[in-house]
Design a binder for these strands. Structure first.
Lengths: 357, 357
DNA sequence: GGGCAGAATGATATCGATAACACTAGGGAG
DNA sequence: CTCCCTAGTGTTATCGATATCATTCTGCCC
């Protein structure tokens, strides 16, 4: 056992006896590594017989393809990067799922990052992603740091900005105007007779979609001649349910005769409604409340919540589809496009004029 | 323009003039590529002066490190893989965030996949992940296909299973007993005088945590001598708010005198409560309802929802920490460990015996 | 029967970084 | 004054797959 002729295998850590390469599979089968490589792709010309033998060997040996080596020589990483502000309890998780689903069976893998609504963090993440040489990248929103824009330009890969219509798009866009969507909600409710509008949102600095919704609100209230809008800023985005509750209290303290409160998201609207009920107010009897995003909670909640339905999942799918187009047809007809996604007002109990809760 | 001596640059796609390598940065600065490589790492010995010049050049040229090349030669991919059942509206998004946060500043990047509660999909994802040669992998739950287990064994990387206590752990575990947690909730409510218990969950086949909660419920109700538990299965996991509402209706049709209904998650509990209110029943006056998971919604909802608080975020952080430990101290003291995470009953209005809504 | 197309496979260079070792210059210890 | 050590840097081989070109073999056509 302790013969002097033992090889010095000190480098081998416990249990890493598995550095199995394509070459060893090849040797085992009696073909060249190149043939094994071909067998892993469906288009390559390998005889059915050989492919079968190779795949049996792969199974027997437990070989797993090493894409990091492959992507180096093929110069295709097989990655798509996507950055979303947050993944918790938000519309963006649906978008992420849409991207994931659209990427299925394309051989592309999603690299997901959370920017936490910060352009600086986004910049860092963009750099981290680009180090993996993704073949395309999907961003949320249109405001990026200068350095981020420069890196993206240099990268020479298709970029899709989502969830907004940036003033200066980098490349492709899949989104909608948050301001106009909110404006539509204001007009719809105004046409039902509501006059004294309040608004609840986060502090605007970081969440550009939130601030677009707010501006859309303020502008439209003004245009309709309904006096200055009553807007409350509460907490850093994403504003929580609890903050929605706190905000509605502040708002009603300051402007007690408010008739309807629009919220930057359904979550804050839900928090506001629950807080009102807790304080014995009836929704929509004493106060009407609406949200944004059409989360599941809004159709289930009692009272159900009026909101704007946005095709979150579709944004993800379409963004990914745009990217795949750009990757396939690269070379021609890759004109940067803006894909507008739909939204619609969903009227529910929480703003029902005849209603009581 | 159409001279015969034009180089045939058909291979060059529009805008990929950016194949900048470390060697070119090196030439630009007048050092070797190796020195540039060193400059990118903090520990390497490069003079401050040289590093500064290199970084300026990197900035000027817009060079971005290529990790896929680096990981091939260093044999460290810099990836950690994590698989969760779903990311939408679920506790797992918090776990994913915990992992992400724990990985910050470690130079490791998260590869996230969604198994959709399917062991087959998990198997496929495990293979896809292993092709990227992750340095460790975090799974949800303890049931995997045989092939998945074999691949994980062969991979020779640390594995952390989370959210449960598997009977046969692969390696490390960070989780808790879902059955015991549910049992605790039953006992707590029984001690408050509740006798006729109902249960709402999804069809059990795929969601092992869900079925553990169900068994915990049934077993404990039995043990307490409270007759056979009244359990409803409704829909494939993850059960939605809406399904929670439908399920509570079925349950009450079948067993109208049920006093308290425990739900597999807070989301279904919320749906159940809202449906009850919609039908004019008072919660907890006419029926008490409890959930599992302590989602934000449960503390905000009116009535607030009794539930089991689970440290979702902490599970993610600890799983990642366990992995980092295993990667650092690789070679010694890597005994597989089971890390138990805490849970506690949170009593709220929805099961308040004196209460009305 | 010669030649040629096409399928199947192999040999070699290469992708872009890093590991491992070699080397140089300068400074402190003896 | 020599030796040795260390910090800083360069050289070369290498990671494991794939692009590319070369090669072999078969069969078919004129």
């Amino acid at each position: 056992m302790t013969n002097g002729d033992e090889p010095k295998d000190k480098r081998l850590k416990a249990g890493d006896a598995q550095k199995l390469t394509m070459a060893e599979v090849a040797k085992y089968v009696g073909v060249s590594a190149m043939t094994v490589s071909r067998a892993f792709r469906q288009d390559a010309s390998v005889s059915e017989e050989t492919r079968k033998r190779i795949m049996e060997a792969v199974d027997a040996l437990g070989y797993v393809l090493d894409l990091s080596a492959g992507s180096l020589s093929s110069r295709r990483s097989g990655f798509i990067a996507a950055l979303v502000p947050s993944i918790n309890n938000s519309n963006f998780s649906d978008t992420a799922r849409g991207i994931t689903d659209a990427l299925e069976n394309t051989g592309l893998q999603l690299l997901l990052g959370y920017t936490d609504y910060s352009a600086e963090k986004e910049e860092k993440l963009i750099e981290a992603m680009l180090r993996r040489r993704p073949e395309g990248i999907i961003l949320t929103g249109g405001s990026h740091t200068d350095r981020a824009r420069r890196m993206l330009d240099k990268a020479g890969i298709p970029v899709v900005e989502t969830w907004e219509i940036p003033e200066e798009p980098i490349n492709h866009v899949v989104g909608f105007s948050n301001g106009e969507a909110m404006s539509l909600l204001v007009r719809t409710l105004a046409s039902q007779g509501y006059r004294r509008f309040g608004y609840i949102g986060g502090t605007t600095a970081r969440d550009t979609r939130g601030s677009q919704r707010r501006s859309g609100f303020l502008k439209t209230v003004e245009e309709l001649g309904l006096g200055p809008g009553r807007a409350i800023s509460f907490g850093v985005p994403p504003i929580t349910m609890e903050q929605g509750g706190q905000a509605v209290v502040s708002l009603l303290e300051r402007w007690p005769d408010t008739e309807v409160v629009l919220c930057v998201s359904d979550l804050s609207a839900f928090g506001a409604i629950m807080e009102c009920k807790r304080r014995g107010m009836s929704v929509p009897g004493d106060i009407a409340i609406a949200g944004f995003g059409d989360y599941e909670i809004s159709s289930i909640c009692h009272p159900s919540i009026t909101t704007i339905n946005v095709d979150c999942y579709g944004i993800g799918r379409q963004a990914a589809a745009r990217l795949l187009d750009a990757l396939q047809g690269s070379g021609e007809a890759t004109g940067d496009e803006i894909t507008l996604t739909g939204y619609r007002v969903v009227l529910r109990e929480s703003t029902d004029r005849g209603g009581a809760a």
